[in-house]
Write a protein that binds this DNA or RNA. Structure first.
Lengths: 252, 252
DNA sequence: TCAATTAGTGTCATTGCAACAATAACTATA
DNA sequence: TATAGTTATTGTTGCAATGACACTAATTGA
């Protein structure tokens, strides 16, 4: 707020305060060949010329933060109407050598079947990277931003239906299981997974089958309608450490 | 970041972009007479003159966001070394009628025994309000900020040891239980609470007793050392809806 | 027709948890 | 000075969720 407590002393005058630049950065995840990928862009000029960075841009005076994030998202991927969520705001004074830049980071999930619409695919300066092969270090404090995004993603998969935002419209239960395994980095029991996901009632049978080497796979669709419209499925109890990287405990 | 993707077209020049003002607002919680309270300040001038607001102020060019939040916190309460955590960033274009103001909100927990150090207590313009008696509406979009803070607090109590940051140095198990009941808004079973908190091993017996009407209460201290230094106690499985007020799901 | 392969179901013992009953250690007052 | 009242603690028990793992199903390819 522009509501300082001791406004008694000072009259509000924007010119009195030097203003930082504000940007949004969007960490965009998708699934390619069952692997989790992130979109990065290569910087063309100083600072960090040639380094990979999380896509982002300035917030215009007339647009909300989320609008700015969606605009960036669409500029990069050509996709709209996608899951997006504010992640964290990074504002260390020296994170950008040019000037004070405060960055509001978002993270977005692009569905596996939509992401093929990626615009500048052949360009060498915009690329999907598998999360296990991120070039390091990234520009600015983007390593930290990415780490925060991954932590948030992991954390949220555990108690929300976010995983469905990564899958194509129609998918199999074992594909869903694969996502969880990928992101949690641990093997899950097939049988227990089937039972749990079925009991949750978030799946709708499509009647479709997919032929393959063995027994054909039944294909499902995610039921967006369920419950009170919000999240109704929780894979397991939330973990302790997951999303808490940014907090500060008192020393005393 | 100041790293727009299409920097190809444009050279970076701060002057080309109009910059918003950036403030931090700090939602400060404490426990007074076993009740959860929030600190509010009364605005002295336009806009929202006479309305209550969450304390906050401008971010200086040289300080980090968290430093700014701590500075505000100390200005209001005289307390340092307190639990503080970034909450969310609010940046709707018209949330402040004066100019574009982006506010990075924090929330802080002040221990029950420390908060008596409050500076401007007698002042009618700075007051602790019980959370159930918040004057409504608050200035700007502060109702929303406060709601977000409360949701976060509830959510985090469930899977962290945050509750201890509200209690005095030394406390009884039933006082702790009372906090949970207050914030969750539901009764908890005495016996189960005892067992659960004891098994968690986060308490250290002080040997102290407090005399009262019935059987004297054993007093405990929170063991900050435990585990990997971080959160080791989870009251119960995290809830579904809690902290998710700010997200946006795709419509498609 | 029989391995190989992928999909999906059943069983069961263990654990965690909620409900609630029982006991312990005091103070107030009749 | 007993007894009722009050607050603090500990025990018991049954149900439900979960994890480990064995089993059945439906297809392809040799």
């Amino acid at each position: 707020m522009a509501d300082t407590t001791d406004e008694t002393a000072e009259t509000y005058d924007p010119a009195r305060y030097e203003r930082p630049s504000v940007t949004v950065d969007v960490v965009i995840f998708t699934l390619i060949d069952r692997e989790l990928h992130v979109l990065l862009v290569r910087r063309k000029r100083w600072p960090y010329e040639g380094f990979w960075a999380i896509p982002g841009g300035f917030v215009q005076m007339h647009e909300s933060l989320e609008d700015a994030a969606r605009r960036e998202l669409e500029e990069e991927t050509g996709v709209r109407d996608i899951y997006i969520e504010q992640l964290y705001t990074f504002g260390d004074p020296d994170r950008d050598p040019r000037t004070r830049v405060i960055s509001v980071a978002y993270f977005a999930l692009v569905r596996a079947d939509r992401q093929r619409l990626r615009v500048s695919d052949e360009s060498l300066d915009v690329r999907w990277f598998p999360v296990r092969e991120i070039p390091s270090p990234l520009a600015f404090d983007h390593d930290r931003i990415l780490a925060t995004a991954l932590a948030r993603l992991r954390s949220k998969l555990e108690y929300t239906t976010l995983a469905f935002e990564l899958l194509p419209e129609v998918f199999s239960i074992l594909e869903l299981k694969h996502i969880y395994e990928q992101i949690f980095g641990e093997k899950l029991d097939k049988g227990n997974f089937y039972r749990k996901i079925k009991d949750a009632g978030v799946l709708e049978e499509t009647g479709l089958l997919r032929e393959g080497r063995g027994r054909p796979t039944r294909l499902y669709r995610f039921r967006r309608d369920r419950g009170d419209g919000q999240f109704v499925f929780r894979w397991r109890e939330a973990r302790i450490d997951a999303d808490d990287s940014q907090e500060h405990h008192p020393s005393s």
